[in-house]
């Protein structure tokens, strides 16, 4: 028998209405309030305890409430957590999602709640737990019960989950690998035939719309500016002391170039797997033109050169990692009073 911990609010926990919204969290053995509507439909699992907490108390004391939840999780050691459902309720929605997120993240226990699609909690927390698609108000509970318990029963039995669409939960936005029955070429040709006939087809990858990055305004006086050099071309000190990856880098590095006027062959090299490195190894300045920057500094064209190389491998790097690198590099450069950056790619 799998153990399920249930979370609900003052209203569904049958304490009272708005006047009880400041009720501090407490726990009761077994199902209480609306948990009783779900309990009979669970197969192979039982609700071992129900946490009840007032909505106002939760949103104003999130840390204290989560501390309480933590204690109960450690006491009851549940296999699954169910919360709500909160339908279109704002505070209760946040509370359910916060509890789910906390427990799923820290204890790797699957957590399930249910929200109406317009509930702001959907966008905020869909990546952190299972949020089932339920109706706007508690009047739709009859539909919500079989949907949520059916899904929880699959989690209990370990049955393979369908797609978010089939299971009616909001997609977390996570891409996971699967093996299809047919190979990619067969699927491509089938998709094309449907598209040509004007029949419905489903793309396997929705196109993302990217934020357009506007170029910064030009520097007013280059001769007073401090310029830094960054590259995604995988240029590192020879021998790759920090084991920079050839692809899918998870970090960037900052190397001191104090006292150097150039990135010389044998002192630096490329570890990037995404381009022909022969010419970059012969002269690493071809990818990260530090020599040119130093010459411009000597000629007075630019004020000064930041004496570091900020580098990573931009090869099969996910947009999320690349964005993080950019933010971290910008922090470093801002702290050093850098005015402008030459960023080279390959």
């Amino acid at each position: 028998m799998k153990k399920i911990l249930f979370y609900t609010n003052q209203f569904f926990g049958q304490i009272g209405g708005e006047e009880k919204a400041y009720t501090e969290p407490f726990v009761e053995e077994g199902p209480r309030g609306n948990a009783n509507a779900f309990a009979p439909k669970l197969e192979g699992g039982e609700i071992v305890a129900t946490i009840v907490c007032g909505d106002n108390y939760f949103v104003e004391n999130v840390d204290k409430c989560l501390e309480f939840v933590k204690k109960q999780v450690e006491e009851y050691k549940p296999d699954i957590l169910m919360a709500g459902p909160a339908f279109n309720a704002g505070r209760f929605g946040i509370a359910c999602c916060e509890v789910c997120k906390y427990v799923q993240t820290n204890y790797k226990i699957p957590c399930v709640t249910g929200l109406y699609w317009e509930n702001p909690g959907v966008e905020m927390y869909k990546a952190d737990c299972y949020i089932m698609e339920v109706g706007k108000s508690a009047a739709t509970i009859r539909k919500a019960i079989p949907l949520i318990t059916g899904f929880v029963n699959k989690l209990i039995s370990g049955e393979k989950l369908g797609t978010p669409k089939q299971e009616h939960y909001y997609p977390k936005g996570q891409r996971v690998n699967v093996f299809h029955e047919k190979n990619g070429a067969e699927r491509a040709v089938e998709m094309l035939v449907k598209k040509l006939k004007g029949e419905e087809y489903e793309t396997e990858l929705e196109i993302s719309v990217y934020e357009k990055v506007n170029p910064a305004p030009p520097l007013k006086d280059l001769s007073k500016a401090k310029i830094a050099l960054c590259t995604s071309g995988g240029i590192v000190p020879f021998g790759n002391p920090d084991h920079m990856f050839a692809a899918t880098a998870k970090f960037w590095k900052k190397y001191s170039l104090e006292g150097k006027d150039s990135l010389n062959e044998g002192e630096f090299e490329s570890v990037h797997a995404g381009y022909d490195p022969v010419y970059a190894n012969e002269d690493p300045n071809r990818v990260a033109p530090y020599n040119t920057l130093k010459e411009l500094e000597k000629e007075g064209v630019i004020g000064s050169v930041y004496p570091y190389l900020l580098t990573t491998t931009g090869n099969s790097t996910s947009v999320a990692d690349a964005t993080r690198f950019g933010q971290e590099m910008a922090q470093d450069l801002l702290a050093a009073g850098v005015d402008g950056v030459i960023l080279t790619s390959t």
Partner: peptide, 9 residues
């Protein structure tokens, strides 16, 4: 496409 591997959301 000479692989059955794919990805879903």
């Amino acid at each position: 496409g000479n692989t059955k591997l794919g990805a879903v959301t």
